[in-house]
Amino acid sequence: MNQELLMKLSECVEFGKINLASPYPPTMKGQPGADEYTKEALEAGAQPSEILDELVAAMGKVGQKFTENKIFVPQMLLSAKAMSAAMAHLKPFFASGAVQRKGTFIIGTVFGDLHDIGKNLVAMMVEGAGWEVIDLGIDVKVEKFVEAVQQHPGAALGISALLTTTMVNIQPVIEAVKAVSPDTKIIVGGAPLSAEFAASIGADAYGKTPQDDIVWLDTLIA
């Protein structure tokens, strides 16, 4: 019974079925979504950690399909929404310590830049991969990044920029964060960035797609 529910839940996340009311995908219209199946699975006695594993695996498939251009951002957003709907039921178990996240990931768009779509996508996908995400928002000043890193020791940091004029603002953030917390691992991303640029400003990694961030974060805890 639990296995069947978990399989349905996995499908909901993979194909972006948020809840009963959601009309997408058309083939699942009128059926329960990730919201209902998670609730049902918990009531049926499924372990929260089992559910989380299922969700993470489903989001892994989503990330892979996105990387291969089999799906695009709208479909990925709906999968992430379905994931969030499921995660809402697991929150009490995270709070009690019954389920452990992989770690904490702080993310923000660098100061001077008000774009948020790329940052939001990465935040949703990383959360879906089992990490706690602290989203600092857009136009984030150096001090706010530093403060967040100090408040969350051991957290990894992601910094986003979408413009050539604002990508240069990432380096002062990296320098300030490394000055107070040299061991903090930092990944950067955004349309104008490259692996070479990331290396030149002292970042530990460059993420071209959300999946790159997830793969890199997993190496930190391997």
Binding site: G16, S22, P23, Y24, V73, P74, Q75, L77, L78, K81, D116, I117, N120
Partner: peptide, 12 residues
């Protein structure tokens, strides 16, 4: 209304 909302509304 924000790019995320536009992209999701295209489907929903």
């Amino acid at each position: 209304k924000g790019p995320d909302n536009v992209l999701m509304d295209m489907i929903l």
